Simulated scan of single mutants.
Amino acid sequence: MNVVGYGCGTDSTAMLVGLWRRHVPVDLILFADPGGEQPHTYAYLKTMERWLKEHGMPGITRVWYTTRAGERMTLEQECLRSGTLPSIAYGRKSCSLKHKVVPQEKFCNHHQPCLDVWAKGGKVSKFIGYDAGEEKRLVNALPHDLRDKKYQKEYPLMEWGWGRADCIRAIREAGLPLPGKSSCFFCPSMKRREIRTLYHRYPELFARALAIEDNALPNLTSVKGLGRNWAWRDFVEAERRQMAIREVFSEDDLPCSCHMKGEMHETDG
């Protein structure tokens, strides 16, 4: 029983392409949806679904976190209800575990083919897309992998020696567009350039991210906002001020360091 944990990013997409090229059987492809992926990721899922169907591979099974009452709860809803930021802002990874790992394991715990393997004392093979440049992640995961009694973790990209460039090449050779980065639109790990892109391309999503940050603000002590030691709101307001300055002044007429327009004023002596 071979299961793929699909993240809809470059590495995991290349891994699916490589498994198909090497005729490695895939029985189940799981995508854990936290409910806050950016639009390009949800669009790419449809693209990948078509490619998988055309190449005789199973479709993508979407899973997500549910409460004890069986109701779906997105990471955004959880943050708003609890008045907190995603756990990675505090240096923890529980948001990924709760909304990515747990839903996949819960699905497999009720998936009959997996149950059949475990009933016979075997392990389900789970393929994970760490590329050849991510040895540190593998080293960190190894102790847990060795203790896992239910899954045999496999890292095909590392086995093939595929780095990021190899993954990109494989995706393009398969006739697929590149998927772009997969992350929640309010992820504290986003770089400033990615925040700028979100602000300009998806202003409604950016507003929802600020709502999470503003809602958590009264409860923050060790961090200042979604940027950990800085707030997204402060960042974008600083960007707006800079843009306003550039609209008022020409490139040759920007304020100097003393905040006076034009040439530096004369100094005594």
Rank of each mutant, 00 (worst) to 15 (best):
G129Y: 00
Y6S: 08
T61Y: 09
G91A: 08
H111E: 03
Y151A: 07
F107Y: 11
L85W: 01
M264S: 13
Q38E: 11
I60L: 09
C108R: 06
K149T: 14
Y65N: 09
A69H: 15
G133Q: 04
V124M: 09
R137I: 01
E159I: 12
G133P: 04
A231Y: 00
F127N: 00
V3P: 00
T47Q: 10
N229F: 15
G269P: 05
W232L: 00
K120H: 14
K181N: 09
R72L: 13
G262D: 06
L217N: 11
I195Q: 01
C187H: 03
S12T: 10
E159Q: 15
K98P: 01
Y151N: 07
R62K: 15
V124Q: 04
A14C: 12
P39F: 05
C108S: 06
K93A: 14
G56K: 06
E213I: 01
L198F: 07
Q104S: 10
D145L: 11
V24M: 09
D268K: 12
Y44M: 02
L254Y: 06
H144I: 15
P156R: 02
F206G: 01
R172A: 14
H144E: 15
G59S: 12
E159A: 15
L178D: 03
D116G: 07
W230A: 02
R241Q: 15
P179M: 05
A132T: 04
V236M: 10
E239I: 10
K106E: 14
L28K: 04
D252R: 10
K126V: 13
E135F: 07
M15W: 04
P188H: 02
Y65I: 04
Y155Q: 05
N219P: 04
R62P: 05
R233T: 02
I195C: 02
A119T: 05
G225S: 02
L157D: 00
A170I: 02
P103W: 02
T221S: 15
A165G: 11
E78V: 03
H200N: 11
R246K: 15
E78W: 11
R68Y: 12
T74G: 10
D268Q: 14
M57Q: 13
G70I: 05
P58M: 07
K136Q: 11
G122S: 08
K98E: 08
Q38A: 08
C167T: 08
L28V: 08
G36V: 10
M158I: 13
K106G: 07
L28C: 09
E76L: 14
I212L: 06
G5A: 13
P25S: 06
E263P: 04
K98G: 07
I195L: 09
Y130N: 07
Q152P: 05
E159H: 14
L254F: 03
C79H: 01
K126Y: 06
A211W: 01
G175S: 10
C184V: 04
D166V: 09
E251N: 08
L16W: 01
A141C: 07
K120R: 14
L178M: 11
H23N: 15
W20R: 13
G129W: 00
A170M: 04
R193C: 09
